[in-house]
Computed example of a mutant assay.
Amino acid sequence: MATRKIPMRKDILTNKMYPKREMVRIVKDKEGNVSIDPTGKKPGRGAYVGLDPEAIKNAKSKKSLEKVFSHAVPETFYDELFDFVDHQKARMDLFGDLGKKH
């Protein structure tokens, strides 16, 4: 059986490459709303962050997402993103790669 290529994406906060399944997509839509995109299919300008809650804390203090999207990002979004990433990381640690088919 041939091995499949693993899609990689760059983490906008750390500039490191990770498998797409181990990342969270963030989207800015036409209206300028920034949101978490768990499906990876929302329309708009997308960027990826890794499952590192500490990187999210640093991004909040440096306002990194505002620089990436050239748009104001509410403080509450950073908290929402932190909670989502922390939850996803815990699930990954507990269950391993959830997207892997057996």
Rank of each mutant, 00 (worst) to 15 (best):
residue 53 P to M: 06
residue 89 K to N: 12
residue 76 T to M: 03
residue 26 I to T: 06
residue 22 E to H: 10
residue 2 A to M: 12
residue 6 I to Y: 04
residue 94 L to S: 15
residue 35 S to P: 00
residue 75 E to Q: 07
residue 21 R to W: 08
residue 64 S to I: 02
residue 50 G to T: 04
residue 97 D to M: 07
residue 54 E to L: 11
residue 31 E to P: 02
residue 93 D to Y: 08
residue 92 M to A: 13
residue 3 T to V: 11
residue 42 K to C: 01
residue 93 D to A: 14
residue 96 G to H: 11
residue 95 F to A: 13
residue 71 H to W: 07
residue 57 K to T: 14
residue 86 D to A: 15
residue 3 T to Q: 11
residue 55 A to H: 03
residue 100 K to Y: 08
residue 17 M to A: 12
residue 93 D to N: 15
residue 40 G to A: 07
residue 6 I to G: 03
residue 52 D to Q: 08
residue 62 K to S: 13
residue 4 R to T: 13
residue 25 R to K: 10
residue 87 H to E: 13
residue 47 A to V: 09
residue 91 R to A: 14
residue 72 A to I: 04
residue 45 R to V: 06
residue 15 N to D: 14
residue 20 K to M: 10
residue 1 M to D: 12
residue 93 D to S: 15
residue 9 R to I: 07
residue 33 N to R: 12
residue 82 F to N: 03
residue 95 F to S: 12
residue 38 P to N: 10
residue 18 Y to Q: 09
residue 61 S to T: 15
residue 98 L to V: 15
residue 26 I to Q: 02
residue 35 S to R: 02
residue 24 V to K: 02
residue 43 P to K: 15
residue 24 V to N: 05
residue 100 K to W: 07
residue 54 E to G: 08
residue 19 P to A: 09
residue 85 V to R: 04
residue 43 P to E: 14
residue 27 V to N: 02
residue 54 E to K: 14
residue 3 T to C: 05
residue 5 K to Q: 15
residue 28 K to V: 04
residue 69 F to R: 01
residue 47 A to S: 10
residue 70 S to G: 06
residue 2 A to V: 11
residue 68 V to G: 02
residue 40 G to H: 03
residue 52 D to L: 06
residue 19 P to Q: 11
residue 62 K to I: 11
residue 71 H to L: 05
residue 76 T to Q: 08
residue 51 L to M: 05
residue 18 Y to H: 13
residue 59 A to F: 01
residue 64 S to E: 09
residue 57 K to C: 09
residue 62 K to Y: 08
residue 80 E to K: 06
residue 49 V to F: 01
residue 94 L to Y: 11
residue 26 I to Y: 02
residue 32 G to A: 05
residue 49 V to D: 02
residue 49 V to Q: 01
residue 13 L to P: 00
residue 85 V to Q: 01
residue 100 K to L: 13
residue 26 I to L: 09
residue 57 K to V: 12
residue 47 A to Y: 00
residue 98 L to M: 15
residue 55 A to W: 03
residue 77 F to N: 01
residue 80 E to H: 06
residue 24 V to P: 00
residue 61 S to E: 14
residue 46 G to Q: 04
residue 45 R to L: 06
residue 36 I to Q: 03
residue 85 V to A: 01
residue 89 K to T: 12
residue 95 F to N: 13
residue 56 I to W: 00
residue 83 D to W: 04
residue 13 L to N: 05
residue 30 K to E: 14
residue 14 T to D: 08
residue 54 E to A: 15
residue 1 M to P: 09
residue 26 I to K: 00
residue 9 R to Q: 07
residue 31 E to K: 11
residue 18 Y to D: 05
residue 11 D to K: 04
residue 75 E to K: 07
residue 22 E to W: 06
residue 13 L to D: 01
residue 61 S to H: 10
residue 80 E to C: 04
residue 73 V to N: 00
residue 80 E to V: 05
residue 98 L to R: 14
residue 100 K to N: 07
residue 50 G to V: 01
residue 38 P to A: 09
residue 12 I to E: 06
residue 61 S to V: 14
residue 70 S to D: 11
residue 85 V to M: 03
residue 93 D to V: 10
residue 19 P to L: 09
residue 48 Y to N: 01
residue 41 K to V: 05
residue 99 G to E: 12
residue 63 K to C: 02
residue 43 P to S: 12
residue 58 N to W: 05
residue 10 K to H: 08
residue 88 Q to T: 13
residue 75 E to P: 00
residue 19 P to Y: 10
residue 9 R to A: 07
residue 87 H to W: 07
